[in-house]
């Protein structure tokens, strides 16, 4: 899977290094998971498989984590099995990461894969289900957006002290998310409606992204 370029992931790693943000990177498993391999019954995104061919797990800026896929522990498998049987039975997504120490998860959506099989990414708020917000049209663009978010976050007044008064992902960066042209198109076409349902936050988020898309460029 090394043939799929991952400039977004590389950028995220570079940004963390440059800004001195705590990062933990785990080596990849000898035999990483393959694209299309079933994870709790759903096909693994090829881009996510490419990520796992480079990393066995990660924590970026003490905030964004990538579930581990290692010889001793396969959190990707374990968390998704649990979700399917326990707390997320109806949502056809593959959880692959989240926000550290918070019940916010990031997941790919197999049903909305593009022609290359690349799946879009949503955020799931497990505090208040379903709580789904679309954030990227593929895994690498998701990492790219995160890298740009971190750059902005660090430059924001108050960040050094506690980050509270500064930016929160994704709410405060709809403009960054809106540069993802395919995601915007999917949102315009209401392709996430089945996942988001009538959720008020999802409606608010869609309005923010689409408004930002109307006034900015795209990737």
């Amino acid at each position: 899977m090394r043939d799929i370029p991952l400039p977004g992931l590389e950028r995220l790693q570079q940004v963390c290094r440059r800004l001195g943000l705590f990062t933990r990177l785990e080596p990849p498993r000898q035999v990483p998971p393959r694209a299309g391999e079933r994870v709790a019954g759903l096909p693994l995104d090829p881009m996510l498989a490419a990520v796992y061919s480079r990393l066995g797990g990660a924590l970026f800026a003490r905030d964004l984590y990538l579930l581990r896929v290692e010889d001793e522990a396969n959190e990707l498998e374990e968390v998704n099995e649990q979700a399917r049987t326990d707390w997320l039975p109806d949502l056809q997504v593959i959880l692959f990461g989240g926000k550290a120490a918070l019940a916010y998860y990031y997941a790919t959506v197999p049903a909305l894969a593009d022609a290359h099989g690349f799946q879009p990414v949503v955020r799931i708020n497990a505090y208040e289900m379903p709580g789904v917000l679309p954030v990227a049209s593929n895994v690498d663009l998701f990492f790219d957006t995160w890298a740009r978010y971190l750059e902005r976050l660090v430059a924001t007044p108050g960040y050094e002290e506690d980050g509270f008064s500064s930016l929160v992902f994704p709410w405060d960066v709809p403009d960054l998310v809106a540069t993802d042209a395919r995601l915007v198109r999917l949102m315009r076409e209401a392709r996430f409606a089945e996942l988001t349902g009538e959720d008020e936050d999802a409606r608010k988020w869609a309005a923010l992204v689409l408004e930002a898309a109307g006034s900015g460029g795209s990737r």
Partner: peptide
């Protein structure tokens, strides 16, 4: 509270807790 406000408070709670 609305969604973004709750997100902010949860992030603040994480920082305060650690």
């Amino acid at each position: 509270l609305d969604g973004p406000q709750k997100d902010r408070l949860r992030e603040a709670a994480r920082k305060a807790y650690s």
